[in-house]
């Protein structure tokens, strides 16, 4: 299983990758939507954690493209609750779930299980 972490914050990227390292054979990181798309094209990840507000290309835009680039990837939006509507839009465009920052490791683990489950049912 391959994981792609998309977040402009290094702290968050590290936190997620630390929490999920044991579950994934390979972990890729991207700082914005553009990098994420390039990485996803090459690696075809199984799971993507996606921040929404990032420089260059935001999460919503990225998810719109991601569903064609890596259609099988499960996408978990991991973002603060500042703008509910943006998060709703992200889910509308194909993200499978939402996890609110800040989160605990177990929050993240159970959210990952959920999105992998719904993405697997598709």
């Amino acid at each position: 299983m391959k994981l792609l972490i998309v977040d402009d914050s290094l702290v968050i990227r590290n936190k997620i990758s630390r929490s999920l390292l044991s579950r994934f054979a390979k972990v890729e990181r991207a700082e914005n939507g553009r990098q994420a798309l390039e990485s996803a094209k090459k690696e075809l990840p199984d799971l993507i954690t996606m921040d929404l507000t990032m420089p260059e290309m935001g999460g919503v835009e990225c998810i719109r493209h991601m569903v064609t680039v890596a259609p099988k990837a499960a996408i978990l939006v991991v973002s603060a609750l500042s703008d509910k509507h943006t998060a709703i839009t992200a889910l509308k465009y194909g993200a499978n779930g939402f996890l609110c920052k800040p989160f605990t490791e177990s929050d993240l683990q159970s959210a990952i299980e959920q999105v992998l489950k719904v993405a697997g049912q598709r």
């Binding site: 509507h85 889910l91 959920q114 999105v115 598709r122």
Partner: peptide, 29 residues
């Protein structure tokens, strides 16, 4: 109006196959 629109988008998520209903409660507008 914006809340109503958000609400519309939000509840339609519950009918989308690809969205996990357990993971959107926080977004309830």
């Amino acid at each position: 109006e914006s809340t109503a629109r958000s609400a519309h988008d939000f509840i339609s998520l519950y009918f989308k196959q690809h969205v996990s209903p357990d993971l959107i409660g926080d977004l309830n507008p």
